[in-house]
């Protein structure tokens, strides 16, 4: 089993606060890993470290065998920021084509395909600034998919989307995973956790579970992932008091 993402003893300080306290994990090539945790637990921070835009205090992050953020990696990694980051003053198509142009060998046809993949074909010529919230975030997602990356880091890709669209996107994610792409997806929605191969549960900058979905269910002794999540978090609390 090849390792796509390797995080070791990662310590990140943001502002004056230590946000990640020496965490480590490794993500295998191909498949979907869910990154879950309460708001403010450090999911976005960890993802930023993996794509190489986060200053880190100590520890290491390796992606596809190279240090995170290195030049050779940047053509192989796609990043969806939590807040949509596309140009509001251009159309969807112009945005996706621009991001396509940053990757060697990625064509305008690929751009149109990415737009279709996120279900925005009908709005392709609409200005991004005039899109609805969910369309806006899908435009951003299309720009992350368009470079045909080997590693996809998606920060809450389905937030605010209806069940039908979520279903379609997850089918797309599974399809990508089946073709060997490594996906790390953060989410708050537990029914999405069930669609992942592995889960990383993070709480206050520490990993409290890192296993297959079934193993997490077994550890918490419940089939309901919502409940499992709560139990695992509660199980941590006495430890916190003691320390």
């Amino acid at each position: 089993m090849d390792v796509a993402i390797e995080v070791r003893d990662l310590v990140v300080v943001r502002g004056h606060k230590e946000v990640l306290h020496g965490i480590g994990t490794s993500v295998a090539t191909g498949g979907v890993t869910g990154l879950l945790g309460p708001s403010g637990s450090g999911k976005t921070t960890l993802m930023r470290a993996i794509v190489g835009v986060q200053k880190v205090r100590s520890g290491s992050v390796t992606v596809l065998g190279q240090p995170a953020g290195s030049a050779a990696l940047r053509s192989r990694i796609g990043y969806l920021t939590q807040a949509p980051s596309v140009y509001a003053d251009m159309t969807v198509r112009e945005n996706v084509r621009y991001f396509a142009s940053l990757y060697k060998g990625v064509t305008r046809a690929d751009a149109d395909r990415a737009i279709a993949d996120v279900g925005l074909s009908d709005a392709a010529n609409q200005m991004v600034g005039s899109l609805s919230g969910g369309q806006f975030s899908r435009a951003s997602l299309a720009c992350a998919l368009v470079g045909r990356p080997d590693v996809l880091i998606l920060d809450e890709p389905t937030v605010g989307l209806d069940p039908v669209l979520r279903e379609e996107l997850w089918r797309k994610f599974r399809e990508l995973a089946a073709s060997g792409v490594t996906l790390l997806v953060s989410s708050h929605v537990m029914d999405e956790a069930g669609r992942c191969d592995r889960l990383i549960l993070i709480r206050e900058g520490r990993i409290i579970a890192d296993d297959t979905v079934d193993a997490v269910r077994r550890a918490a002794d419940t089939h309901d992932l919502d409940e499992a999540f709560l139990r695992l978090i509660r199980a941590q609390e006495p430890v916190e008091v003691a320390s």
């Binding site: 794509v51 835009v53 807040a83 980051s85 140009y87 940053l102």
Partner: peptide, 13 residues
């Protein structure tokens, strides 16, 4: 401020 810069810096640009 729109986050596009950060995103661009994760691409080959």
């Amino acid at each position: 401020t729109s986050g596009t810069l950060e995103r661009l810096l994760t691409t080959p640009l």
